[in-house]
Simulated scan of single mutants.
Amino acid sequence: MDYVIGQIDRALDVNSAVVAALDSGNLDAPTPRQDWDVRTELNHTIGTMHIFAAVLSGTYSGAERESDWLGGDPRGAYAAAAEIDRAAWHRPDVLDSVIRHPAGTLPAPRAALLHWAELTTHGVDIAIAIGRPDLADNALCAELLDTLQAEGGIDEFRGSGLFGAEVPAVPSDPGHRRLLAYVGRALLSSTT
């Protein structure tokens, strides 16, 4: 499962490039995540990173993912959260524990896979929303999709607000489109 920790690192790096491409004019853009704009989805992503880090370090106090994590500096907020998140997942023996997370109690390897899925999906959502699907890492998305399917899927998280029902995708679609379809995102157009 060290592979998954490496993929979390990779997703954090990919999302850093997506966040760097943001400007104040596209924070209100709608995302493939129904009813969310870029600001809401980025705030949720940063909150998820902080909450996972707190859970992993045993300092979780019940903070909500939807609290205001962005403040006035989305790029700075993301960079700080990424540093904290990365450090938490690189703690010795982190994968030997059971994680008590707001999404439920999970073995740490399953929680790591869920985190990789959330980071990657939200990053793709934001990249598409700002008109930069080229920033999506199609190989990372395809690897995540293959791993999720090999590890039993995400059915336990569908309908809980984390992921929706799978929507149709074309097998020849790029990795990011196939991943979004798998996690229940409506595909916006053929250019995404």
Score class of each variant (00 low, 15 high):
Trp69Gln: 05
Pro92Asp: 02
Arg110His: 10
Ala142Gly: 01
Ser61Gly: 15
Leu42Thr: 05
Leu180Arg: 06
Glu143Gln: 14
Ala29Asn: 13
Pro32Lys: 00
Ser172Arg: 09
Thr31Tyr: 15
Arg185Lys: 03
Arg100Pro: 00
Leu180Gln: 13
Ala139Val: 13
Ile126Gln: 09
Ala139His: 12
Arg158Thr: 03
Pro74Tyr: 08
Pro32Gly: 06
Ser189Leu: 00
Val38Glu: 04
Val167Trp: 01
Ala127His: 09
Leu113Lys: 09
Ser172Ile: 07
Glu143Leu: 13
Val55Ile: 04
Pro171Glu: 01
Leu114Ile: 14
Tyr182Arg: 03
Ala82Arg: 15
Trp89Asn: 07
Glu166Ser: 08
His115Tyr: 14
Thr191Gln: 12
Leu119Asp: 07
Glu151Asn: 10
Gly152His: 08
Leu119His: 10
His176Phe: 05
Ala181Arg: 07
Ala29Val: 01
Leu179Trp: 14
Met1Lys: 00
Gly123Pro: 00
Ile46Leu: 13
Glu41Lys: 06
Leu188Lys: 07
Trp89Met: 02
Arg177Met: 07
Val98Lys: 06
His101Tyr: 08
Arg10Pro: 09
Ile154Leu: 15
Ser67Gly: 12
Glu66Asn: 03
Val170Pro: 08
Asp155Arg: 02
Pro171Cys: 09
Ala112Asp: 13
Ile154Gln: 05
Thr40His: 11
Gly104Asn: 08
Thr120Arg: 14
Trp36Ala: 04
Asn26Phe: 07
Leu148Phe: 12
Leu42Asp: 14
Ala80Thr: 06
Ala20Thr: 10
Ala108Tyr: 04
Arg185Cys: 02
Gly123Ala: 11
Glu118Ile: 13
His44Cys: 06
Arg158Gln: 11
Ala165Leu: 05
Thr120Ala: 08
Tyr3His: 11
Arg178Asn: 05
Pro109Thr: 05
Gly131Ala: 12
Asp85Glu: 09
Thr120Cys: 09
Ser190His: 07
Ser190Trp: 08
Ala80Met: 02
Pro92Thr: 14
Asn26Cys: 14
Leu56Pro: 03
Thr121Gly: 07
Leu140Gln: 15
Pro171His: 12
Ile84Lys: 15
His101Thr: 04
Leu106Ser: 06
